[in-house]
Nucleic acid binder design. Structure first.
Length: 99
DNA sequence: CGGCTGGCGTCGT
DNA sequence: TACGACGCCAGCC
């Protein structure tokens, strides 16, 4: 199974209403510092809707980027009950899903 | 808080 | 096949 497949699978483990970081996700698939690699994969996401890549945020608490626009990402997140303030997630540390 | 550098896989020459 | 550029970062200064 290639890397992206593993990433997608791991990401599917994140329940609705919770989030994870690129770094955590990267480590979850065996990468120590592959956050950026993960970002690349997400960007090349072949399954836009099936893969909840909007539940992945930066370790700083910001929502990070999104292939279809960060505003869309923020929208989806708030739609799942996650509040966003100026691109940052409120109490995101309490919503992070630990693998 | 803004800017610079490090590190990793994928994609396009 | 090999090399350099790039991306939805992270961390230090």
């Amino acid at each position: 199974m290639n890397l992206e497949q593993k990433i997608y699978k791991k990401l599917l483990e994140v329940p609705k209403g919770q989030i994870t970081t690129y770094g955590e996700l990267a480590k979850a698939v065996g990468l120590k510092n592959g956050q950026r690699a993960v970002g690349k994969i997400m960007n090349k996401n072949p399954h836009p809707v099936i893969i909840p890549c909007h539940r992945v945020v930066m370790s700083t608490g910001k929502i990070g980027g999104y292939a279809y626009g960060k505003h869309v990402k923020a929208k989806m997140l708030s739609d799942e009950g996650i509040e966003i303030k100026d691109g940052k997630i409120l109490d995101w540390e309490d919503r992070v899903y630990r693998f």
